[in-house]
């Protein structure tokens, strides 16, 4: 089990390096992040054993990332809408 997860991680690392060499336009970042999230999830589920753990541990493991999304989402809500209202004279 451990070894096959490990091989999957190596394969994904190779893919992410290979994909970075291609120009996918707006998809560059989502693809790179998607692969990173997959790799992270593999580590969390198998190496860190969340797959076999209690629902509480699963909740705790997810909650950190949910809270990050709150930080990212709301802060970017500011940065992305700053330009909506024209500034007179600019």
């Amino acid at each position: 089990m451990c070894v096959s997860v490990f091989l999957a991680l190596l394969v994904f690392t190779a893919i992410t390096v290979w994909v970075a060499g291609l120009d996918l336009g707006p998809l560059n970042t989502p693809v790179a992040l998607g692969i990173a999230v997959t790799k992270g999830t593999l580590v969390v589920l198998f190496f860190m054993g969340v797959r076999w753990n209690t629902p509480l541990t699963k909740t705790v493991a997810i909650s950190g990332f949910v809270w990050l999304l709150i930080l990212f989402g709301i802060t970017m809500g500011d940065y992305l809408t700053r330009g909506w209202l024209g500034v007179p004279g600019r």
């Binding site: 709301i74 809500g77 500011d78 940065y79 992305l80 809408t81 700053r82 909506w84 209202l85």
Partner: peptide, 10 residues
Amino acid sequence: LFVSSQSIYA
């Protein structure tokens, strides 16, 4: 941040 140049929509 209401007066700190935050977007008014935010």
